[in-house]
């Protein structure tokens, strides 16, 4: 009973990290049309940025800010100097996926070359734990859940109420029409890289905080459940990604009470496959998500 309870607790934390990452990932794909397989490695890079910030004496919160900003800046640069270069030469969806796979390998191995293959860890404030129901959380874990809720509320408000957010949704559904409305879609796409990169960086720091140690391959491995969550919810749909993250986060952690933890990813994909059998477009289709935003 209490094992299930605490695994639900862990599930919520995993779901929170997944949600931040998956919303960023799906937003990036929805607006820019690039399925960025280097996303996980940018998460890792953000975690390293936070790690070096703490080594330089920054408090944890400041290190998290630094990590998020690193994620944002690196994502924008990656698009500006790599992806858009290929896109301008006519690379389409699949060719572009190969480019992002290449970028992923370069970024990950580049980090291994520079930072080394060793596991490092962020200094989590020792000691204090908090009992919430049957589960016990550390301070940083509670902060991760709170940050995820905040990020989700922020993304929701941005997409729903601001001009920029509406323009991002407009660009995602119909870029030609967006241009004929006078939108500089290139700048809107830049903004989408910035925002999704910020979420990517935040997720990277949260992941590093939650795993006690991480290495240069950590983000790349985590990308698999991120993609599962995004696809489960309906790729390109921020609300779907939130829902997908919750389902996959909870299911993988709760499954640990029944099967070996090494099957976590298998469980995530079993759920994905079953859902896609019945709803190939993901839990929330485009129409459903638009309705959800509207009401």
């Amino acid at each position: 009973m209490s094992i299930v309870g605490s695994s639900i607790g862990f599930g919520l934390i995993t779901a929170s990290i997944l949600a931040i990452a998956a919303v960023g990932f799906t937003l990036q794909f929805g607006v820019t049309n690039i399925l960025n397989l280097a996303y996980g490695d940018i998460m890792t890079a953000a975690a390293f940025a936070a790690y070096f910030a703490t080594k330089g004496g920054a408090p944890l919160w400041l290190a998290a800010v630094a990590g998020s900003l690193a994620g944002a800046v690196l994502s924008v640069l990656l698009n500006r100097f790599v992806y858009s270069w290929f896109a301008r030469r006519g690379a389409k969806l699949f060719a572009m996926i190969m480019v992002t796979l290449g970028a992923s390998l370069v970024v990950q191995n580049g980090m291994t070359a520079v930072f080394g293959p060793d596991f490092v860890s962020l200094p989590t404030s020792a000691g204090t734990t908090y009992q919430v129901g049957p589960a016990i959380f550390t301070g940083p874990q509670l902060a991760i859940v709170a940050l995820a809720l905040l990020a989700m509320a922020g993304v929701h408000s941005l997409l729903r109420y601001t001009r920029l957010g509406q323009a991002m949704r407009a660009t995602a559904t119909n870029p030609d029409l967006a241009r004929s409305c006078g939108m500089a879609t290139n700048r809107i796409i830049d903004a989408a890289w910035l925002l999704s990169g910020l979420l990517c960086g935040l997720a990277g720091v949260a992941l590093a905080l939650n795993l006690s140690t991480f290495t240069t391959g950590t983000g790349g491995t985590f990308l698999i459940p991120v993609i599962a969550a995004a696809v489960l919810g309906g790729i390109g749909q921020p609300y779907g990604a939130m829902l997908g993250a919750l389902v996959i986060g909870l299911a993988t952690e709760v499954s640990v009470t029944v099967v070996s933890p090494s099957y976590k990813t298998v469980v995530a994909f079993a759920i994905l496959i079953v859902v896609l059998l019945f709803r190939p477009q993901g839990i929330l289709s485009e129409v459903a998500m638009a309705k959800e935003i509207a009401t």
Binding site: Q166, R169, A178, E286
Partner: peptide
């Protein structure tokens, strides 16, 4: 814009 409301379409 299919995924936007009537009002949002007009404001775009």
């Amino acid at each position: 814009f299919d995924s936007l409301t009537v009002q949002e379409n007009l404001s775009m």
